[in-house]
Design a protein around this nucleic acid. Sequence first.
DNA 1: GGCAATTGTGGCAAAATGATGGCAGATCAG
DNA 2: CTGATCTGCCATCATTTTGCCACAATTGCC
Lengths: 229, 229
Amino acid sequence: MPRTIALVEDDAAIRENYTVALKNQGYQVQTYADRPSATEAFSRELPDLAIIDIGLNEEMEGGFMLCQQLRQLSQSLPIIFFTARDNDVDTICGLRMGADDYLTKDISMAHLLARIAALFRRTDLLAAPKEHSEQIRIGHLNVDVSRMKVTWQSIPVSLTVTEFWMLHALIRHPGHVKSRQQLMDESRMVVDDSTITSHIKRMRKKFVELDPSFDHIDTVYGMGYRWQA
Amino acid sequence: MPRTIALVEDDAAIRENYTVALKNQGYQVQTYADRPSATEAFSRELPDLAIIDIGLNEEMEGGFMLCQQLRQLSQSLPIIFFTARDNDVDTICGLRMGADDYLTKDISMAHLLARIAALFRRTDLLAAPKEHSEQIRIGHLNVDVSRMKVTWQSIPVSLTVTEFWMLHALIRHPGHVKSRQQLMDESRMVVDDSTITSHIKRMRKKFVELDPSFDHIDTVYGMGYRWQA
DNA sequence: GGCAATTGTGGCAAAATGATGGCAGATCAG
DNA sequence: CTGATCTGCCATCATTTTGCCACAATTGCC
């Protein structure tokens, strides 16, 4: 499945030039010479990445407008401004409008391609299963799954294995209430309800020993427990 | 929760300068003057963003090495190279190593801050999306089922389990009248009619305590109760 | 208004649930 | 083998919730 890149650029020569280069990299390229045609196309289908020139024919700031329109359609669509206008104001403006990068036309093709690849690498993480994240941060809590290490306000918390997996189950959906049964299932343990109570007790104790004001493990009477951010 | 930015830079003056600017933006900043100290710190806890100079003291490419180490620790950690070395080779190299941006030290502070903000905007999407919180909103009422939380005009209402499920049953079809029997069935409880009356009483009380003008649980004489929007 | 049916109120006791401290077996490193 | 740690569980105590009742208030209807 080749990625689709939309190139919005009013200069026909540049358009041609970059289209060829991008296609050589295996990207599928759609080009638009002005804002109306781009808008029309995007309303039908979004590309995987949009590269936009700011000045589009008579619309001096057409690219900015297009960026805003695009952001309304998708929060996550990668957008790169690619323009001759090399000044701080336009750059900052562009980034604030929701663009992911702002590049000037004097950079080399290799540089542009590297930027594009880096941005795709970043956005691929969005699509990837979230379970993979080895590091979970919620407020002052930091849980490193692969290392089985937990810190609270940067202070290491020495949890036992069972406690670790219970905490992991508790914060997997931050703020959600977990019944004792769910905690058992997600920590893969088969025990009595009262045992869960015991583990919660021991975990709380360990956190409170580090931070006397700790109270982020809520008891939801009759339901279970909840990690409160 | 303030975001933590790690700044790895061997020049003390620059370090100071940028630390102040970043702190003014509300970021928490940790600085490291060389690779070993940064490596050591990152092995304990990861920041939310790393800004890395490439040349670190005698290590001409220490920043590159650090970037690679960091990427091994986390696929998703945002990394920005920030260096005086302005050439295509280093830039492309840096981006290929997994950095999200490559900036040269001649850019303005405002530009740097805009780049940082843009990157955070992008990475926030990673943390946010899976929040399929089952939220029900009716007027000023907000019911989050998975969190077992109810708010009225954004003020949390502390309902008990039975009350929670009764409210849930009551608002499932907004505006419809629910008989006591229906409320019982939908809250999975088998009790006397008068008990339902009691629960309604207690719920009303809790809402009125927060908002004296509260009047959204209608009594429909002979029929049951109705949540009025 | 008078009457029967229905609902609101305050309160109470039983039941359910959770917290605590401790104990015994299991596990494990030295 | 020994001591330390971990784990599951229990008895006990404290707290919260729940169901229900008697009685007052309200409603619909004649």
